[in-house]
Computed example of a mutant assay.
Amino acid sequence: MTTSLTESAIVSRLRAAGCVFAEDEARLILAAARTPDDASAMVERRAAGLPLEHVLGWAEFCGLRIAVEPGVFVPRRRTEFLVRRAAALAPPRPVVVDLCCGSGALGAALVSGLVSGLVSGLVSGQVSGAGGAELHAADIEPAAVRCARRNIAPFGGRAYEGDLFAPLPDALRGRVGVLLANVPYVPTGDVATLPAEARDHEPRVALDGGPDGLDVLRRVTAEAAGWLAPGGRLLFETSERQVADAVAAVERGGLAAAVATSDEFSATVIAGAKPV
């Protein structure tokens, strides 16, 4: 675009505001802005602390451009490891549920098939895209559900508003092959230490997991087995210090727990399998 606001001026403004990757952000803003006034407004929103993804209106996740809007949790790169684990464990043509879905990024990435090429050893036919998977998503936040509907519609997905499993169709009980649950797992006392971008601009319900960070997870694991198909898996992300308690919650729910870690993504994922 042609604009009187130069890239160097934007870089200087963003750097002064504390943006570590000011050069990259300046290029993205200039590419997204439709007019000079639009660019100026975007720069000021970013300098004021709004997450870059909310400024741009999208986040990159697993090779997809995921629509996000203010008040919606921004998908993290580390969570791509969860999607990779799900792709590696998914049965052919799975019924997929993305619980606590936020923008719907996890479900969209899994059923898009794009992630399959990143996972070695996939069985032919696994996660073959919209034609091979049935996708459902749910979140308690209305703004998140609006975003999720936009992001999963190209893959035939449906999104529901409500608390955890409550809004899901009863017809899904006992049929879910992959249950993605990106539950909040930050202990309440640690929320104040999060970066301002998350603390001030993302919904608290998407961050705060209760006193030890596992309150929502325990609610999910208590019900998951009733929704999973035989051999189906519940997958979620947690921190290293929470692994033992998270595994215990999975096992109390009648699932067999397996822990996977990634140095590349600095992530820990637990999968709970329902007996066949």
Rank of each mutant, 00 (worst) to 15 (best):
R241W: 04
F236G: 01
G210C: 10
V250E: 00
P203L: 08
R218P: 00
L214G: 01
T238S: 12
V183D: 00
V191F: 11
V259L: 13
R252P: 01
A222F: 03
A224Y: 06
A258Q: 14
R199Y: 13
V247D: 01
P184W: 07
G231T: 14
V183L: 11
T188W: 09
G189K: 10
D208S: 14
V178A: 09
D212G: 13
V247G: 01
A249D: 01
A224N: 08
A224P: 00
T193W: 04
R204T: 14
T188V: 07
A222I: 04
P187G: 15
G231M: 14
A249I: 12
V220P: 00
V247Q: 06
P211H: 08
A256M: 12
P203F: 10
E197P: 10
R233I: 10
G213V: 08
A181E: 01
G254E: 01
G226L: 04
A222T: 04
R241Q: 06
A181V: 12
E237Q: 12
R199M: 14
R252Y: 04
T188H: 08
R241I: 02
R204K: 15
L179A: 07
T221W: 04
A181S: 15
N182I: 04
E202G: 10
E202M: 13
L179G: 08
G210T: 07
V247C: 00
G253D: 00
G254C: 05
G177R: 01
A181G: 08
R219G: 00
T193V: 04
W227T: 14
V205H: 04
A248N: 01
R218N: 07
G189E: 05
V183S: 09
G210N: 09
E251N: 10
P211E: 15
A229G: 03
L255P: 02
R204L: 15
G189N: 07
G177E: 00
D208I: 14
E237M: 07
G177C: 12
A257R: 02
P184V: 10
L207N: 13
G231N: 13
G210F: 06
L217S: 03
V205Q: 09
L228P: 00
V220Q: 00
V243W: 03
D215M: 07
A244Q: 11
D212Y: 07
P195S: 13
A225C: 10
R199S: 11
P187E: 14
R218M: 04
R252H: 11
D200M: 12
N182A: 10
A192F: 02
A225M: 05
A206I: 07
T238D: 06
L207W: 14
H201F: 15
R252A: 14
E197Y: 09
S239Q: 12
P230V: 11
R219V: 02
G213Y: 03
L255T: 03
A246M: 08
G209Q: 02
L194K: 08
S239G: 15
L180I: 11
A258P: 00
R241A: 05
L180T: 08
H201C: 08
G213I: 04
V186D: 01
G232Q: 04
P195G: 11
G189T: 05
E237F: 10
